[in-house]
């Protein structure tokens, strides 16, 4: 699948924002602290940048308002509705924290639940597509949710470290969710070998009973919407190199930095390490999201002779 930058930015930014908002809402940290005030502000900013970015890939944005109407059947619509709903508790909590140094326990829980439901809906847009076997698994929502929390935790850690000078044992918890998220992602990634799932050129054409099917001539000489949108694939060599880069940036460097930050808590080095962990993690997550799309094969490729699309 073609990795559209707007969608990559949207899923990573808003995922991080919702994760951060959920952790703040659950009230682990005193709402009067500067880091919580900044955290709410940052969460709202990340969510808003993400949502705005997601409208950039619409070919006809003037009808975007209608996207709230079909929540009965469409995950994309549900995501839209939930995203707007989630603004309500998060904005109230942000107001309470920033201006009154306080919070409301149950509202925080509502915010956290809504935030996670929004992320879940985003992931189900992809996870529910039968045409893309790589995505069509419960591991897709699981990894989106886990990464949302992990990114939120890494960012929360850096906020507390910078504003309060000491993030205590937050790095420890951030490290834990980060590793858990990558464990899920690792299982997800193994599904790549399944290719098109049960579909093949033989089932696509229904000619399997006659023999082995190959494309003799494609229907059009130049690229079209379908080949541009669904046919995108990185050369295998690049995919595995990018995968390694992601693991280094979004797992290894943050994990090591967090572990060291925990060991040296209270020091200036720990603050610096927390910053490094967050920056590398977020850049790595953008690459991870890029690969999420780039690696995915769409069943329609079977009508184009599968491998032939590499050239398109």
């Amino acid at each position: 699948m073609h990795p559209a930058y707007s969608v990559i930015v949207f899923t990573t930014f808003s995922g991080t924002g919702y994760g951060l908002a959920a952790l703040l809402g659950l009230g682990f940290i005193d709402p009067s602290m500067m880091s919580v005030k900044a955290g709410y502000f940052l969460a709202l900013a990340l969510i808003s940048i993400g949502l705005l970015s997601s409208t950039l890939h619409l070919a006809n944005p003037k009808n975007a308002i209608r996207a709230f109407s079909q929540w009965r059947s469409s995950w994309l619509s549900r995501e839209g509705v939930l995203a707007i709903l989630t603004y309500v508790p998060i904005t109230i909590l942000a107001f309470l924290s920033i201006f009154m140094d306080s919070s409301i326990g149950w509202l925080g829980i509502v915010a956290a639940v809504l935030a996670m439901l929004t992320v879940f809906s985003t992931s189900m847009i992809y996870g529910s597509l039968r045409t893309i076997s790589l995505w069509n698994t419960w591991l897709t929502p699981a990894s989106y949710l886990a990464f949302s929390i992990a990114s939120g935790a890494v960012v929360l850690n850096v906020l507390v470290a910078v504003f309060e000078g000491n993030s205590g044992n937050i790095p420890q918890y951030a490290l834990l969710v980060l590793v858990a998220a990558w464990l899920i992602k690792w299982f997800w990634n193994r599904r790549q070998s399944e290719g098109y799932g049960k579909s093949s050129m033989e089932t696509a054409t229904g000619l399997g009973h006659l023999g082995k099917v190959r494309l003799l001539e494609r229907p059009h000489m130049m690229a079209n919407y379908l080949t541009r949108e669904m046919g995108f694939r990185v050369a295998r060599k690049h995919a595995s190199m990018l995968w390694n880069i992601t693991i280094v940036l979004a797992l290894i460097i943050p994990a090591v930095s967090l572990a060291l930050a925990f060991a040296m808590q209270g020091s200036m080095t720990a603050v610096l390490l927390s910053v490094i962990a967050a920056l590398c993690h977020l850049i790595g997550m953008l690459v991870e999201r890029w690969l999420f799309f780039a690696k995915a094969k769409h069943a329609v490729s079977l009508y184009y002779g599968d491998e032939a699309l590499d050239a398109a």
């Binding site: 699948m1 890939h57 619409l58 070919a59 006809n60 944005p61 003037k62 009808n63 975007a64 209608r66 996207a67 469409s74 994309l76 847009i125 597509l129 039968r130 045409t131 893309i132 579909s199 696509a204 919407y225 379908l226 949108e229 669904m230 769409h298 069943a299 329609v300």
Partner: peptide
């Protein structure tokens, strides 16, 4: 239609 393209993604 808002041109999101999701329907095309869902069509095999």
């Amino acid at each position: 239609c808002m041109g999101c393209g999701l329907c095309a993604w869902s069509c095999a």
